[in-house]
């Protein structure tokens, strides 16, 4: 990448971040709610992107981890009167541990069995949320979940809460950026690209795969602890298998294995249906068609298109250079 390209990218990044902070200031409550939802879903999808895009494992339980995080937050803040940060810690530890325990036997056997085990886990988690009334209040759900105070600032109003979600997204993104560039992150990618080679290079493949899955699951829990105060009411229904499938869709549609894939994927999944609502009863149908068309056009997701375009342009530029060089050679006496 050339120096100008680098500056261009930094400039674009700063502009997007500034827009995310400034533009929503005069949004109505609905717009802020949707944007907060986007931030929360992006965090969950980033976790899944680590599991899927970097370590190459399919998890169908990310929605269940969001649920675990949400219930941890809801129960601890409404019944225990504890601050959200405590719930966050519990959610991270819980989801990490459950992810580890779940992945351990599944990865013992074969690659894609993690998908099957997590599929089963996802529905089991839903049944526990629904049936264990004493803990989760069952199907009645938990109401009046408070929004947190962050360093003395109350986030009850929609705008401060949006900044809270955006800030959390920023922190998670930075941590993820660091993780991917760390030796661990490189090991994850080595695993996805060529497990046999990684093994021969002395990487303990199972441990790293497990680690990626557990960290990814923990991020699901983080998203959950934000989801609960966002809606201020949770019941088991939103955390069934379809949320896990939705999150998987976000990762694939955005571009699995690309850092910014989850941002775009969550945007498609959260904002596109909202845009299409003007078509009334047809909006989900159109959404489904749009996702199918996008995947047919580019099975590697939105960022796959960009990637393809950039590669093409680079080859074109290279061949143009070659052509120029060749013509010069020919015209040279």
């Amino acid at each position: 990448m050339t120096a100008t390209g680098k500056y261009l990218r930094i400039g674009l990044g700063v502009a997007v971040i500034a827009a995310l902070i400034i533009v929503p200031m005069n949004f109505n409550r609905y717009g802020l709610y949707i944007l907060s939802q986007w931030a929360v879903m992006t965090i969950a999808a980033m976790g899944l992107n680590l599991t899927l895009g970097y370590a190459g494992q399919v998890s169908l339980a990310q929605g269940a981890f969001v649920g675990i995080g949400a219930y941890a937050a809801a129960i601890m803040t409404t019944q225990g009167g504890m601050p959200l940060i405590a719930a966050l810690g519990v959610a991270i530890v819980l989801c990490f541990a459950i992810g580890w325990i779940l992945g351990y036997p599944a990865l013992r056997v074969q690659h894609h069995y993690l998908a099957f085990v997590t599929l089963a886990f996802s529905t089991l988690a839903f049944l526990v949320f629904r049936n264990e009334d004493w803990l989760t209040k069952g199907i009645y759900g938990i109401s009046n979940i408070p929004r947190p105070n962050v360093m003395g600032f109350a986030t009850n109003r929609p705008l401060p809460f949006y900044y809270f979600c955006l800030g959390s997204l920023g922190i998670v993104s930075l941590a993820m950026w660091w993780l991917i560039r760390s030796p661990w992150g490189r090991a994850f990618v080595a695993l996805r690209e060529n497990p046999v080679r990684a093994l021969s290079l002395g990487i303990d493949t199972r441990r790293y795969t497990l680690m990626a899955f557990a960290i990814g699951s923990a991020l699901g829990g983080v998203a959950g602890t934000l989801y609960a105060p966002l809606t201020q009411y949770i019941d088991p229904v939103p955390f069934n298998l379809s949320l896990s499938l939705d999150l998987l869709m976000m990762v694939i549609v955005g571009g699995s294995g690309f850092f910014f894939g989850p941002f775009l994927g969550a945007m498609i999944a959260v904002l596109l249906p909202e845009w299409l609502r003007f078509t009334q009863g047809y909006y989900l149908m159109l959404y489904a068609v749009a996702v199918m068309l996008l995947l047919i056009y580019s099975p590697t997701g939105i960022l796959g298109i960009l990637d393809r375009y950039l590669t093409e342009r680079r080859t074109k530029a290279a061949s143009a250079l070659r052509a120029v060089a060749k013509s010069r050679l020919e015209t040279a006496p």
Binding site: V58, M285, A288, L295, T300
Partner: peptide, 20 residues
């Protein structure tokens, strides 16, 4: 995977179309 995801979208589309 991309194909599996596309069939998920197809499922949504079919349900919605029949409902509509």
């Amino acid at each position: 995977l991309p194909l599996a995801i596309a069939t998920m979208a197809l499922a949504i589309g079919m349900k919605e179309a029949v409902k509509q």
